[in-house]
Design a protein around this nucleic acid. Sequence first.
DNA 1: ATTTCCACTTGATCTCGGTCAAAGCATCTG
DNA 2: CAGATGCTTTGACCGAGATCAAGTGGAAAT
Lengths: 247, 247
Amino acid sequence: MTPIFKIDHTNCGDCPIRHRAVCAHCDANELEELEGIKYYRSFEAGQTIIWSGDQMNFVGSVVSGIASLTQTMEDGRTQMVGLLLPSDFVGRPGRDSAPYDVQATTDLVMCCFRKKPFEELMSSTPHIAHRLLQMTLDELDAAREWMLVLGRKTAREKIASLLSIIARRDASIHQKGNSGPIVFDLPLTREAMADYLGLTLETVSRQISALKKDEVILLEGKRHVTIPDMGRLMEEAGDDTDGGFLV
Amino acid sequence: MTPIFKIDHTNCGDCPIRHRAVCAHCDANELEELEGIKYYRSFEAGQTIIWSGDQMNFVGSVVSGIASLTQTMEDGRTQMVGLLLPSDFVGRPGRDSAPYDVQATTDLVMCCFRKKPFEELMSSTPHIAHRLLQMTLDELDAAREWMLVLGRKTAREKIASLLSIIARRDASIHQKGNSGPIVFDLPLTREAMADYLGLTLETVSRQISALKKDEVILLEGKRHVTIPDMGRLMEEAGDDTDGGFLV
DNA sequence: ATTTCCACTTGATCTCGGTCAAAGCATCTG
DNA sequence: CAGATGCTTTGACCGAGATCAAGTGGAAAT
């Protein structure tokens, strides 16, 4: 479907996530050290990158594409607990086995480091540890934001919340002015959305249809979304309309 | 109701959370520096420690008692997004305004630091930053665990999950052997449990009654709980029975 | 002792979202 | 082209949990 990326950065200076990833604060020397131990891996949409319980012998950053963290109960119920976008970090220094499944939602490229050398590097370069702390605190905020969505919002609000998050992220990447319609493609199947939102895929489908009928969103095909009025969408999500918060 | 604690540690060596809090990895010198800028504050049950949106000019650790982080929507729906136990950290270095309400659930003592000096200390002593990273990663895990509870578990499973978490924590504090009945007092009202679990207080009450009737738990009064069989409770929570995971 | 208050329980009813089932609609495959 | 496959939509029905409403019980206050 999508061509496999042929990535061969030898220098991090050209890296699209250079200024946002765990390496963001590194100076030239530190970057050189990272450069020495990094390697790239590609995954196809749908592929499982790490199985829950597996030995984790690497950590890394998402360079392009989207990955998801999911937890599964014995009887098969699943809940997505994280959505990893470009620059997000995978793995946890100081832990051996993975607590969640990590799956490539789209085709994906990761910049990986073997865990051991990375941990050593981390203890010698505070810039990395500091950036990782920042990123972890941001992820914690996002997780807590999501707890409100899961615990207290209606199905319609949940869908609107997800759409507004994706729209906001997309806007932040493409650096658009913040007025006028927002257009993007949904990177998730209905089922993945359901897993994210604690719903069934049928409910997701119904609520998307309802939002379309009420002209909160416009749909072309099943994935291409236009948001004519972001304020309206935020209202539907139950969020403060004036809410300007950065991700 | 409860007497106000008269705490006047001048030396951190005697502190009950010395080995678990953000200062856990500090050596004698570092501890001395912290000692210089710390101060204690007490709060009564029900008191709000920090209002969402407020300026945060201090950070700190819970020394004794329980606090909760809650998010509120405009229409009044609330979701608890964190439960802070002794040794847990409040506040975020590098951020000015609080994103959540912080409330004392029980009478509470905190060990506080003004934000500015703490941040400076943090950048000079990697041990603090490192410990804070560890703790934040643990909190992120807990938040994700909770997302599964909120998104996918039934009301009965939610209650069982909460009880098992409290029981586990209690056991870890009192260092009991892990067989035989577990006894503890619920530190939360039915309403607080409901806010934690994304339920109504009526449903919480009904499910607790049901677990009592089925002899999964024993109740004396409204708060004193006995768990005759922890494995049984974990089954009811939908967790792996063999699940040994540390908090 | 009686009132008040508060946390909690219990019951009756309603509703949102889940479940089960069928069908639509693109994209691959032979 | 027909058939298969995967994602999505839609409909009919049902049930877990919310909502609305009383009532209970224990501790503090008068």
